[in-house]
Write a protein that binds this DNA or RNA. Structure first.
Length: 470
RNA sequence: GGCACCGUAGCCAAGUGGUAAGGCAGGAGACUGCAAAUCUCUCAUUCGUCGGUUCGAUUCCGACCGGUGCCUCCA
């Protein structure tokens, strides 16, 4: 097995990775803020994390993954206030939508989906520790801030020391209570609108609510421990979110917060970052309505390396749809064939090596997909030539299953509809009869009727096969 | 303005100091009643531009051009 390597944002280099305890990977992944449904840009990151999770499994490690659901923040409070409902009433349905979208995209369920509001005591404890060691202070506005000057390593992840701050852009006018403009809020004093929608908790500093970064540190440490193996998220979280997480966590424990920091690049639309603010978002629901399959979406996302920007376009989605159609047809053939050959077994061995190598090399999914298509081509050739080796077939099936267990790009045929199946079978019998009497006009009529129902047919020496294509 | 990343065929995309994977689209052929699927052949003497290093660069260095992101809520 090749060495498993990952790009670590902390060192800006690809490094060998293995879990600290040798067996189980502790993985923290920043999840969605549940004020409205996540778009495909958000899901690109979650798909990258799903790929990471599955690749770790492929290596034989177990994974304990946490994905937080941020259910209290400025946007949530604002929206709840607009609708005169509580934050819970706003966020509960969005959490459900998130899981429905997640399942549609075949993103494996994490072990934990903690909601920020369920970990307020842990967050308060963390702030207490920081206050006790002098890195946190309560300001005149009643909020508690983290003093970045007190934490020596501040800015290490995002290389703040190498940046020049744009004049006038940095200091927010309403942050006058902070000792330093870059200090960030750990605990925010309650405002009337917070009270109105239930976004307040009692604390040693008075009623208030947690700052944005606090939840991730508190929940990661509570569930996974003070030093986790991998912390992942989108690149936009590097600063300030992850930087601040490191500061507050390490200032409290004196231990490294995460050994590896992994960041996924953005999804673009029309050359610009997909963002609600830009107004160029596509949700999973939108894409489903357009008939784009989960397999096609996964193929699309995995066709580009996760650290490279990816542009969403109709043409790209069509190409992916056609690509997974080929994969699906091959998968069907693999199930249907009765035996293979030495060439097939050889192709399978090559696929296993190539795919494992690619995925172990900083999750190179595009290269793994290339290896998969090479295999499909070689296997189709082998099947066309026929063979009698059943163990070769078993080997091919086994390897294909292993690789697909990571990529999961075989389209769902949805052919388990028995009513539809019997109807199609009757149609095909009629067509076979028409062909037998060389009445091709009638036969073509049947094929056209089936196509209108989304059924594609393939004649073969052993009979006619059919499949749902939409 | 500061800090990064990216620029490979019509489109998407991997890649390496030694002569360009794979997918989509396209062209020709085999198979088929016709299709579909599959197979065969074909499809970048060339990797944004200009220099430099080197026996040799798409790959290293520099400049320039173009694109994107972060520096503020953000996957």
């Amino acid at each position: 097995m090749p060495e498993f390597r990952l790009y670590n944002s902390l060192t800006r280099s690809v490094e060998p990775f293995a879990p600290a305890d040798g067996a189980k990977v502790t993985l923290y992944t920043c999840g969605p803020t549940v004020y409205n449904p996540a778009h495909l840009g958000n899901f690109r990151t979650f798909l990258f994390e799903d790929l990471l999770r599955r690749a770790l499994h492929m290596r034989g490690w177990s994974v304990e993954q946490v994905m937080n659901l941020t259910d209290v923040d400025d946007k949530i409070i604002k929206r709840a206030a607009e609708r005169s409902i509580s934050i819970t009433e706003l966020t509960d349905p969005v959490c459900e939508t998130f899981h429905a979208d997640r399942e549609f995209l075949r993103i494996q369920r994490a072990e934990h989906y903690p909601r920020a509001t369920a970990f307020i005591p842990e967050m308060i404890d963390l702030v207490k520790r920081l206050e006790a060691n002098g890195t946190a202070y309560k300001a005149d506005d009643g909020s508690v801030y983290f003093a970045i000057d007190k934490f020596e390593g501040y800015g290490r992840l995002s290389r703040l020391d190498t940046r020049e701050i744009r004049a006038g852009a940095r200091v927010a006018q309403d942050d006058y209570a902070k000792e330093n403009a870059q200090d960030f809020a750990l605990w925010k004093a309650a405002k009337p609108e917070d009270e109105a929608c239930g976004a307040v908790w009692d604390s040693p500093w008075g009623r208030g609510r947690p700052g944005w970064h606090l939840e991730c540190s508190a929940m990661a440490m509570a569930i996974l421990g003070e030093t986790i193996d991998i912390h992942a998220g989108g690149v936009d979280l590097v600063f300030p979110h992850h930087e601040d997480e490191i500061a507050q966590s390490e200032a409290a424990t004196g231990k490294p917060f995460a050994r590896f920091w992994c960041h996924g690049e953005f999804l673009l639309t029309d050359g610009a970052k997909m963002a609600k603010r830009v107004g160029n978002v596509s949700t999973v629901a939108d894409l489903r309505a357009e008939g784009v399959s989960a397999a096609a979406l996964r193929h699309f996302v995995f066709s580009t390396h996760y650290r490279k920007q990816l542009n969403l376009s109709g043409a790209a989605l069509e190409a992916s749809t056609e690509a997974v159609r080929r994969i699906g047809d091959f998968s069907d053939r693999l199930s249907r064939e009765k035996a293979g050959s030495a060439q097939l077994a050889e192709a399978a061995d090559t696929l296993l090596i190539e795919a494992t190598t690619a995925l172990s090399d900083d999750l190179n999914a595009p290269r793994a997909l290339g290896a998969l298509f090479d295999f499909i081509h070689a296997a189709n050739r082998a099947f066309d030539a026929t063979g009698t080796d059943t163990s070769a077939l078993a080997r091919a099936r086994n390897v294909f299953r292993q690789v697909n267990a990571v990529l999961d790009v075989v389209p769902d045929r949805g052919t388990d509809d028995s009513v539809l199946a019997s109807w199609v079978d009757q149609q095909l019998a009629d067509r076979a009869a028409a062909r037998a009497r060389r009445d091709f006009a009638a036969a073509d009529q049947v094929r056209k009727a089936l196509e209108e129902k989304g059924i594609a047919i393939e004649d073969s020496p052993t009979g006619t096969r059919w499949k749902k294509v939409r």
